[in-house]
């Protein structure tokens, strides 16, 4: 201010945040997860994630006909999140097709960033699951080889703990926390996911209500209804929290600002709904994992949730019935 009287219409206070700064924060938060994935699954993890990000950014740049490949960074986040929901041993063209589908069908057809109805990364994943399902969510998963960067991880395979197969029985709690078990790239390590999410909480990009509602519902339903490999019900609840994509979904995908409700109570309903559908599919459905379907279904319900949970204004009373 140099002493001039500035006359302008509202808004008068502007945030220094931009789409790009938020997306870079998300990329930073995904850093630890990506690092652990590379440590566990070696070069194939690095290739899958790089290809996913690259394909997403390239698709968006081509669609928008712009030279700035990185742009606002949202395509990079979508590509990375999509790659993190894939197993390490997928062929290179799977993340390419998935990322292109995510960007074009999931986002650009709806008018681009901020206007999509469904989470783009999950749209890409759903299309991949139903097109090449046996490569994505079959019973055979590569076993991680920690600290062997050049190892061929597709040599040794096993079932994920969620499939409930006998050979996956000996998964310990520490394995669940660190992530040294079979699974998708970004979803095995609970510690890295929580660590990354703290950055987003600290920056205020995500609200506790969605992950809180989601994780609490999964834990309660897991404890009450069982399933999984442990006999102790409290461990079973924990098992459901730490396996599969629940943490990745609850912390990074369900919290997507565009596709989740904006009202506080709506966020809670959204989280609880995600948890409910996830557990229904896990315990009773044909698929071992339900995070993708749960979040996509709740994305579709988001406009309705928003509509019916508009908070009452201060001092507003319920409208009286007219005589």
């Amino acid at each position: 201010m140099n002493g001039k009287l500035v006359i302008s219409s509202s808004p008068h206070v502007r945030t220094i945040q931009s789409v790009q700064s938020i997306m870079i924060d998300v990329l930073i938060a995904l850093g630890p997860v990506a690092l652990v994935a590379v440590l566990l699954f070696g070069k194939q993890a690095l290739i899958t994630m790089a290809v996913g990000m690259g394909a997403a950014m390239l698709t968006e740049a081509l669609w928008l006909r712009r030279w700035n490949i990185f742009g606002d960074g949202s395509a990079a986040v979508t590509g990375l999140l999509l790659a993190m929901t894939l197993p390490a041993n997928v062929p290179w063209w799977i993340p390419v097709i998935g990322a292109a589908a995510a960007i074009i069908i999931g986002k650009q057809l709806y008018g681009g960033i901020g206007q999509n109805i469904f989470n783009p990364a999950l749209v890409g994943r759903a299309i991949l699951v139903f097109s090449w399902g046996s490569r994505l969510s079959g019973k055979i998963w590569p076993v991680p080889k920690p600290f062997h960067f050049f190892a061929d991880i597709s040599a040794v395979t096993t079932a994920t703990p969620l499939a409930g197969e006998a050979e996956a029985m000996e998964v310990s709690l520490s394995q669940l926390l660190i992530g040294n078990m079979a699974g998708c790239l970004g979803e095995t390590s609970a510690i890295a996911l929580i660590f990354g999410a703290f950055w987003l909480f600290y920056k205020g990009h995500i609200d506790w209500r969605i992950p809180g509602g989601y994780l609490a519902t999964v834990w309660i339903m897991g404890t009450l209804l069982g399933g999984g490999i442990y006999i102790n019900p409290y461990m079973t609840g924990l098992f459901h929290l730490l396996t599969g994509g629940v943490l990745l979904g609850a912390l990074f995908m369900a919290t997507d600002m565009v596709t989740s409700p904006v009202t506080p109570s709506g966020k809670l309903i959204f989280g609880v709904g995600c948890g409910l559908i996830t557990m229904l599919i896990r315990l009773y459905g044909a698929y071992p994992e339900g995070v993708t379907f749960a979040i996509l279904t709740m994305n579709a319900l988001t406009p309705l949730i928003d509509k019916f949970t508009i908070p009452r204004k201060f001092g507003e009373v319920k409208r009286l019935v007219r005589p």
Partner: peptide, 21 residues
């Protein structure tokens, strides 16, 4: 057109309920 595309994504999401009962 966009309604049909949305319906198809919604249909993909609902396929997750398969085999439940």
């Amino acid at each position: 057109a966009i309604t049909l595309i949305t319906a198809s994504i919604l249909s993909l999401a609902f396929m997750g309920f398969r085999g439940m009962m």
